[in-house]
Amino acid sequence: MAEIRIEGVEKTFGSFTALHSIDLTIRDREFMVLLGASGCGKTTLLRIVAGLETAGKGEVWIGDRRVDHLPPRARGIAMVFQNYAVFPHLTVYENIAFGLRMKKLPQAEVDRRVRSKAELMHIEMLLKRYSGELSGGQRQRVAVARALAMEPEVILMDEPLSNLDALLRLEMRAELKHVLAESRTTTIYVTHDQVEAMSLADRIAVMNAGRIVQADDPVQVYRNPAARFVGSFIGNPPMNFLPASRTEGGWRVAGQTVPGPASGKDRIDFAIRPEDLILADGGLPATVRVVEPLGPHTLITAEVDGAPFRAVLDSDLRVAPGDRITLAPNPDRIRWFDPETQDALT
């Protein structure tokens, strides 16, 4: 059992607050992704859990042990670093065996674990090599095998795929998901890549400016962003936003009346994902600016109410720049945000 509880963790660097009182619980065997732009504090949070950074305030629990005062070696974690951190003076075999030798395990057990993890990561033919003789992808595999060989309660991954080229990243992503699911460890995985986050995570914690904005399963995060930031950060192209003002029987958005939440405010934000729009009468009037056919669908950048507005339409539809069209939002998928607090309204 290795549930990770982060309670009120704060971190400052000089006058800069990197983390504002973070509370997060990662369930046993859960794959949690910390997602955010660079500088949002996700790596700092991971390093605090690892013990490589000390929190200014707050507690970190792994299982039923409070670990924030323990050194990394006593926390029952293993970590995979962005630049792999494969020891250059040791062979692949000795790299994977490194932590096991520190634990003073018998040689037979070391050998068994090294070989099984090497096989799992498909590097059994590289065991005698040094890291200088390996490609980036192979080094990444060694780093993961080394972490798995520890058979830790918790695996922490700091952007492990970001140094690989695109094709390799795709391959490793699927493999990591499989291997980590098999290993049944609790995982915290840091990335700035939303596709990686969506495809790997049981839950995503979206971070912004040292705060967790939303922690939920990937589809929830995508469909029901808790804050405007989440909607604009996740999804490519991101969510469209338009100002809405109170009117009789709903909210006025780009000249159209749309039913919406009962808010005390006079002005709120209307939001819709580009793929939740169709070309239909009675929708939002738009002027097409750019048409990008992408094969399965066509991406349209239009102007609605003077603001850029994107729609993903069927690629059979013939639209050209300059066309005046009306885009009808799927009423179930419309979301509303408070323009001041940026929070979702229901």
Partner: peptide, 20 residues
């Protein structure tokens, strides 16, 4: 990171220095 990796793999600070 090499030192940090050694710490997470069971080394104390002095030991990581000696080993890595």
């Amino acid at each position: 990171e090499l030192e940090e990796a050694a710490w997470t793999l069971g080394c104390s600070r002095p030991k990581a220095f000696v080993k890595v």
